[in-house]
């Protein structure tokens, strides 16, 4: 198989499974409803997944060993969190975050 065909087939396959993951819950929940316990369980999804996505960026993974701290990301999280508390504005938070990490990388010369 040519590289072009290989790449295009892989993209199509990956696109299909991702699309199904996105769409199936919406389609199936039109037909079925969920129990109280499941609904209660789902209430916790936002806070847990958002904090998990944040925390996973604070470490560098080494399978089989404890992760090491990603210092630039950890330090940049400080001003970013502060800007979240002070501004409550997502655009401000994102800009403060990017500028903080940019400055940190500039200073440590990485």
């Amino acid at each position: 198989m040519s590289t072009f065909n290989y790449t295009i087939l892989t993209i199509l396959g990956c696109g299909l499974v991702t699309w199904l993951s996105r769409v199936l819950p919406f389609v199936l929940l039109k037909k079925f409803s969920l129990s109280e316990t499941v609904l209660e369980y789902l209430n916790f999804v936002p806070i847990v997944i958002m904090s998990a996505l944040w925390f996973s960026s604070l470490f560098t993974q080494h399978l089989g060993h404890l992760p090491t701290i990603n210092w630039p990301n950890l330090i940049a999280s400080g001003p970013t969190l502060l800007s979240a508390i002070l501004s409550k504005n997502l655009l401000v938070i994102v800009i403060v975050g990017v500028v903080s990490l940019g400055l940190i990388r500039l200073i440590i010369g990485a």
Binding site: W54, S57, T80, A84, I93, V94, G97, V98, S100
Partner: peptide, 9 residues
């Protein structure tokens, strides 16, 4: 870091 900043926010 933009995406991480978003998750923090």
């Amino acid at each position: 870091f933009a995406v991480v900043a978003m998750f923090i926010g």
